[in-house]
Amino acid sequence: MNIFRLTGDLSHLLAIIILVLKIWKTRSCAGISGKSQILFALVYFTRYLDLFTNYISLYNSFMKIVFIGASLATLYLMYMKFKATYDRNHDTFRIEFLLIPVTLLGLLVNHEFTPLEIGDTVLVVQVLWTFSIYLESVAILPQLFLVSKTGEAETITSHYLMALGSYRALYLINWIWRYYFEGFYDLIAIVAGIVQTVLYCDFFYLYITRVIRGRALRLPA
């Protein structure tokens, strides 16, 4: 565990806490894409299946449980408790355009090179892990699409997106660190992590030039 990995995790944790608090405090999920939140829930469930098969550390298990729990809480708030405030008309990204390619890619390009055997738990966990890595890299697209469609984002939503985007960028530095000091790398995670971070670049620019200077995030018409 290096400092970039730790700050990356804390940034990720901060993001999901900001989101839950924003919805809870304002009693509204306006401006938040439910589709992105469904995709993130799917990411956590498929990646953290190893909670049951592979113990790593108390820290690791704790964070996984928090991510799954917060993700479920977000979905509950959006689709049940504050359903009336959900921006359904603007949240129109077609998630099957992400899910289908990502599923195919997960089946084709993963770390498990043995032939497919039905009922092979290790293989299933591995393929689902890979699927989750690919899915996470693009899961923010419905949210970015919603922001571009409405042309604006609340400042608190911008902070959420900034924390969520920074997390994978910090992981990228963590992977460079691990490559140099531990001689370890994971090509699937690295490529997906780069894609994930690149998708946020436009938003990072807007955040730095507008939100930090105290202005609302409003896109040029």
Partner: peptide, 10 residues
């Protein structure tokens, strides 16, 4: 150099 899934990460 070792490669593989970074399963200790989140």
């Amino acid at each position: 150099i070792t490669t593989g899934a970074a399963k200790d990460e989140l």
